[in-house]
């Protein structure tokens, strides 16, 4: 379990994390989402004791990570930036880490095998591809068979097979009762892996919710209707709560009514319908909508729309 309480981190004038409070529970995968520069990596470094919080507290499995007698049994972490000497072999890198905590060397061979690096274990890490480096990072995170696992963008640089592997690995770790906290930019990836979501933007909490709830909110509400009498139907549907827009000749998009409601209106007015379909708003779009006001680095041409509504979206936990 990871408990973060009123966590704030300032680098000079820059506020990287602001008054963040959340709990990551064991037994499930918790996704940590947010746009670039939202403070995910900073938060994760503070949990591992690498950066000291400016204010607030962090605990791992109920204690300060620094005070753990066998730290690698408590927490394994894959950091965003590579944390390995490029001139050393993967085997020696892992062996050196294992020795600090008294982890037997057979475990080193075990994790190397687990992440699929057996063939290159004695090669210089400097020659590794991005994906191989990422696998080595996962191996070092799992070395101590830790109760809590933190992975900062683990699928970064992995091929589809590697992504699937990470997905199953995370689920497996959670199923064993471990706390699994994983950051990502991709909502769709998290929807497949995580049960809970913590969303941050500009260092602040935006949402602490379940994936199911997020997906439910994000989907529906947009219905596409194809009808030779689309303009008549349009007149009947529009109201202050409902917007209708023409997307093609004979085709309209309705916001604010369900497919059933639209079908009923059409039947009552004897209008012909050729297609009536609920559109799944993409998860990425819903995610971007949620974090739009908190995006720090916009591409040119996109202007941030500031909103005063910064209240976090929260919902009950799945206990």
């Amino acid at each position: 379990m990871i408990e973060v309480h009123n966590l704030t981190k300032r680098y000079g004038d820059k506020v990287a994390v602001k008054d963040l409070t959340f709990t990551v529970r064991p037994g499930i995968v918790t996704g940590f989402l947010g746009p670039n520069g939202a403070g995910k990596s900073t938060t994760m470094r503070m949990i591992a004791g690498l950066d000291a919080p400016t204010e607030g507290t962090v605990s791992v499995n109920g204690g300060r990570y620094r005070d753990a007698s066998a730290p690698m049994a408590q927490l394994g972490i894959l950091l965003e930036a590579r944390a390995v000497h490029t001139s050393r072999s993967a085997y020696n890198h892992l062996l050196a880490l294992a020795q600090t905590n008294g982890i037997p060397s057979r475990r080193v061979a075990e994790v190397i095998d687990l992440v699929g690096l057996s063939e290159v274990a004695k090669k210089r890490v400097g020659g590794f591809s991005l994906g191989m480096g990422q696998r080595l990072g996962v191996a070092s995170a799992l070395l101590g068979d830790p109760q809590t696992v933190i992975l900062d963008e683990p699928v970064n640089g992995l091929d589809p097979e590697g992504i699937l592997w990470v997905r199953n690995l995370l689920k497996g770790l959670a199923a064993e009762g471990r706390t699994v906290f994983v950051s990502s930019h991709l909502m769709s990836e998290m929807a497949l892996t995580a049960q809970r979501l913590i969303v941050v933007g500009r260092g602040q909490l935006i949402a602490d919710t379940t994936v199911a709830e997020f997906v439910a909110q994000a989907s529906g509400n947009v219905v596409v209707v194809r009808s030779p009498q689309s303009s008549e139907l349009r007149e009947l549907l529009v109201s202050p709560d409902v917007t209708v827009s023409a997307i093609a000749p004979g085709q309209i998009e309705v916001h604010g009514l369900s497919a059933e409601q639209i079908g009923d209106v059409a039947w009552e007015n004897r209008l012909r319908i050729h297609e009536l379909s609920t559109q799944q708003a993409s998860l990425e779009e819903a995610f971007m909508e949620l974090t739009r006001n908190a995006v720090e680095y916009h591409a040119h041409g996109v202007t941030p729309s500031h909103s005063a509504d910064d209240r976090p979206v929260t919902s009950g936990d799945p206990r």
């Binding site: 791992v60 499995n61 005070d67 007698s69 050196a96 020795q99 905590n101 037997p104």
Partner: peptide, 25 residues
């Protein structure tokens, strides 16, 4: 059940000691 004191390391005798860090170095 999740307090750090209650977590049993997967490997017997797992613990950071100065001697082990020297070995690692």
């Amino acid at each position: 059940a999740t307090h750090s004191a209650d977590i049993r390391p997967a490997f017997p005798g797992m613990k950071v000691t100065q001697a082990r860090v020297i070995k690692s170095e």
